[in-house]
Amino acid sequence: MNISPFFRNLRSAYQAELEDLRSDSEGRDVMRQRLTQRRKELKFLLQMMELSPEMVAVILHQGFTFKSPAMMEHLLSLAPDEFPDWDSLSDAIQPAPWAHDLIQVIRKEPVGDWFLTVAAGLEYMHHKPATAPAHIHEPEEDADEDLEADMNPLDAEEESDARSREEAGADWMVEQGFDRKD
C-alpha cells in the first residue's frame, strides 16, 4: 500500500496522542475517561483542526467502521489537496452512532470535511496492522529512525512541514495554559 507523506507524517503523532491518553501516571487505563473529556471540549479543539489534526482526531477514535478497504487505501495515498468530498466517502466509512453529533458540529467548520477525512484516514491506519508502526512502545529515537527509513529523501520537506505544524500546535496549547508534552 502506498501511503502519502502527509499521512505517514501524521501517523506517529496520532499514535503518540492515543498513547498519551491511554494511561495515567500510575499506569491505570484511563483512555475512555480522557476521550470522553476531549469530546466535551470539541468547541475548543475545533480551533486546532487544521494546524494539528492528529491532536483533534483522537476524539473520533473508534468512531468509524470501514466498509471499503480499497477506498480507504486509495485515500491514504492522496495529498491533502486531493481528498475527495466527505459525502463521497459515505459508502466507505460508517460513523458510530455516538459520533454523529460530533461529525455534524465538525462539518460546520470551514475545514470540517477535510478534517474528517484526515481523522478517518488516521483511524483506519491505526486499526490496520499493515500500516501500524511495528513497535509502538519503542524509544522515540528508534521510532524516528524507522519512520525515516520508510521515507525517501524527497519527503524531507513534508517531514519538516509536519514537525513545524506539530511544534506550532504545541506552542499554541502552551499559550492556552496546557503543559508542553515532552
Rank of each mutant, 00 (worst) to 15 (best):
M1F: 00
M1S: 11
N2T: 11
S4L: 05
S4Q: 04
N9T: 13
S12A: 12
A13L: 15
Y14R: 11
Y14H: 13
E17Q: 14
L18N: 13
L18I: 14
L21H: 10
R22P: 00
S23A: 14
E26R: 11
E26W: 11
G27D: 06
R28F: 03
R28W: 08
V30L: 06
M31Q: 15
Q33H: 11
Q33S: 12
Q33D: 14
R34K: 14
R34C: 03
L35W: 00
L35P: 02
T36Y: 11
T36I: 09
Q37Y: 12
R38F: 00
K43D: 15
F44P: 02
F44V: 07
L45T: 04
L46E: 00
Q47I: 01
E50L: 00
E50I: 05
L51K: 08
P53F: 02
E54C: 03
E54W: 13
E54P: 03
V56C: 01
A57G: 04
V58D: 04
L60Q: 05
H61F: 07
H61S: 05
H61Q: 09
H61L: 08
Q62F: 04
T65H: 09
F66G: 08
P69W: 05
M72I: 07
H74V: 05
L75E: 06
L75T: 05
L75A: 02
L76Y: 10
S77C: 09
S77M: 12
A79Y: 03
D81M: 06
P84K: 11
D85K: 15
D87W: 12
S88F: 15
S90R: 15
D91N: 12
D91T: 11
I93E: 14
P95D: 11
H100M: 13
H100E: 15
D101H: 14
I103E: 01
Q104F: 06
V105M: 13
R107L: 15
E109P: 07
E109V: 00
V111P: 02
V111A: 05
V111R: 09
G112S: 01
G112Q: 01
W114I: 02
W114N: 01
F115H: 02
T117K: 00
A120T: 08
L122F: 00
E123C: 06
A134L: 11
H135M: 13
H135I: 11
I136W: 09
I136Y: 06
H137N: 10
H137Q: 12
E138R: 15
E140C: 08
E141S: 12
E141C: 07
D144G: 01
D144F: 14
D146E: 15
D146S: 12
A149M: 10
A149D: 14
M151L: 15
N152C: 06
P153V: 03
P153F: 07
E157R: 14
E159A: 15
S160Q: 13
A162F: 11
A162Q: 13
R163N: 12
S164T: 13
S164H: 12
E167Y: 03
E167G: 00
A168E: 10
G169D: 07
M173L: 14
V174G: 01
G177C: 00
K181A: 09
K181M: 04
